[in-house]
Simulated assay, not measured.
Amino acid sequence: MNVSHPSVHPIEAAPLPPVDGRVVVPPRVRMKVFQGMPGTIDRLSLWFCQFAYVVVSLAVMASTSDFPSVTAFW
């Protein structure tokens, strides 16, 4: 299946330049806001969840009796 076919994702044709020589500035294209995008509340909440997971993981590892003897953590 060709997903980039125009019938699947229709696009508009570019307008023809004006005949009298004027410069036409096209409208700016804005990016879509998606979950986890920098500068959003979602990104902050995902970062906080990741930080909390790291803190809990380190606390569990540090509470074991053989934590200082494992060479990966030296």
Score class of each variant (00 low, 15 high):
M1T: 06
M1A: 10
M1N: 03
M1K: 07
M1H: 03
N2L: 06
N2T: 11
V3F: 12
V3R: 07
V3T: 11
V3Y: 12
H5P: 01
H5W: 06
H5I: 02
P6K: 07
P6F: 04
P6M: 01
P6I: 06
S7Y: 11
V8C: 12
V8M: 13
V8E: 11
H9V: 10
H9T: 04
H9G: 10
H9Y: 12
P10E: 09
P10K: 11
P10F: 15
P10C: 01
P10G: 10
I11F: 11
E12S: 14
A13F: 05
A14M: 03
A14T: 14
L16S: 12
P18R: 11
V19G: 11
V19R: 03
D20F: 02
D20V: 09
R22M: 07
R22Q: 15
V23W: 08
V24L: 14
V24C: 01
V25G: 03
P26G: 01
P26S: 00
P27T: 00
R28I: 01
V29D: 01
V29K: 09
V29C: 01
V29P: 00
V29F: 00
V29G: 04
R30M: 03
M31W: 03
M31I: 03
M31H: 10
M31S: 15
M31D: 11
M31K: 06
M31R: 11
K32E: 01
V33L: 00
V33F: 07
V33Q: 01
V33G: 02
F34E: 09
Q35E: 04
Q35V: 03
Q35M: 12
G36T: 01
G36W: 02
G36I: 00
M37E: 15
P38Q: 04
P38Y: 05
G39P: 09
T40S: 09
T40F: 05
I41N: 04
D42R: 06
R43W: 06
L44R: 14
L44A: 12
L44F: 13
S45Y: 13
L46S: 14
W47C: 08
W47R: 10
W47H: 04
W47P: 00
F48C: 06
F48H: 15
C49I: 12
Q50M: 12
F51T: 09
F51P: 13
F51I: 11
F51S: 15
A52G: 03
A52D: 13
A52P: 02
A52L: 14
V54F: 08
V55S: 09
V55R: 03
V55L: 15
V55Y: 08
V55Q: 09
V56L: 12
V56K: 01
V56N: 00
L58P: 00
L58S: 00
V60M: 03
M61L: 13
M61R: 05
A62H: 05
S63M: 04
S63I: 05
T64L: 08
T64H: 08
S65H: 05
D66H: 07
D66T: 10
P68N: 04
P68T: 09
P68M: 04
P68L: 02
V70L: 02
V70W: 02
V70Q: 06
T71F: 05
A72Q: 15
F73K: 08
F73A: 11
W74Y: 13
W74D: 15
